[in-house]
């Protein structure tokens, strides 16, 4: 079975039920460090304004940019998930922030207190036991679908077709060929801070809205790089290199 999730952003009300449920279940991370966040995007000029939300979390890419970027090989594809799930071995993780730098979706976040990278694990321990993800279970409006990939894609394409028929001509399924988590969006990917051309980082709008979630940009940049070289030295010292 090839697991996947489809998040229908055209149903999403931006309430953050997914965020509090996820954080309540995975409490190890420090206050404010979240595996899934809600971002609000507004585009246009009054009164012709579009407002939409994006559930921002690991997209579980088929070719995760974070995986080769990790200097200690803490990031791995989950066995038995047929490539759809990407996890971090938290014991191995050194919290250097290279995954944060590499990710085109702004998903992982460094927990400074624990010096660990924190990101969505696709609830792999739940899923491999035949259960659904906590966020999909929680969503009060049924915007998060979890299940078998081909079935989800078929359902999502039907939904996109219905949206288009209702006049939402820009409706599209994002990530059909590239990510374990797909999004139904109504608009240009760039309006949701998503890469428009493959995983083109340059198109990202990192600071879409400071009030809808957590500032993610702070995790990258100079501090992250300094920490990286510091950690590499630590690891090398530990391993007697």
């Amino acid at each position: 079975m090839k697991y996947a999730m489809v998040i229908d952003q055209t149903r999403c009300i931006g309430c953050s039920a997914c965020t509090v449920t996820c954080k309540g279940r995975y409490e190890e991370a420090s206050f404010g460090v979240l595996r899934t966040r809600m971002l609000e995007y507004q585009t246009g000029t009054f009164p012709n304004v579009r407002l939409a939300y994006r559930k921002q979390a690991c997209m579980h890419c088929f070719e995760p940019k974070c995986l080769p970027a990790c200097p200690v090989k803490a990031i791995f594809r989950v066995e038995g998930s047929n490539g759809g799930m990407v996890d971090i071995d938290i014991e191995t993780c050194i919290g250097c922030g290279m995954c944060v730098r590499a990710c085109p979706f702004g998903a992982p976040e460094i927990d400074d207190k624990r010096r660990k990278s924190e990101k969505c694990t696709f609830c792999d321990k739940q899923v491999l036991r035949g259960k659904t993800t906590y966020c999909a279970d929680a969503c009060p409006v049924g915007a998060i679908a979890f299940g078998e990939r081909d079935k989800l894609i078929a359902d999502a394409q039907a939904r996109v077709k219905a949206l288009k028929a209702a006049g939402r001509t820009k409706a599209a399924l994002f990530g059909k060929d590239s990510t374990g988590v797909m999004l139904i969006i109504d608009g240009d990917p760039k309006d949701f801070g998503l890469p428009t051309d493959g995983f083109d980082v340059s198109s990202l709008n990192w600071l879409a809205s400071p009030f809808s979630g957590v500032m993610i940009a702070a995790a990258i940049g100079g501090a992250g790089l300094a920490r990286y070289s510091e950690r590499v030295k630590e690891v090398e010292a530990k391993e007697g290199k």
């Binding site: 309430c15 039920a17 509090v20």
Partner: peptide, 12 residues
């Protein structure tokens, strides 16, 4: 079968 964000966080 569902709750809202306030309900899911109430136990805290």
């Amino acid at each position: 079968g569902k709750l809202c964000v306030k309900g899911y966080s109430a136990w805290k």
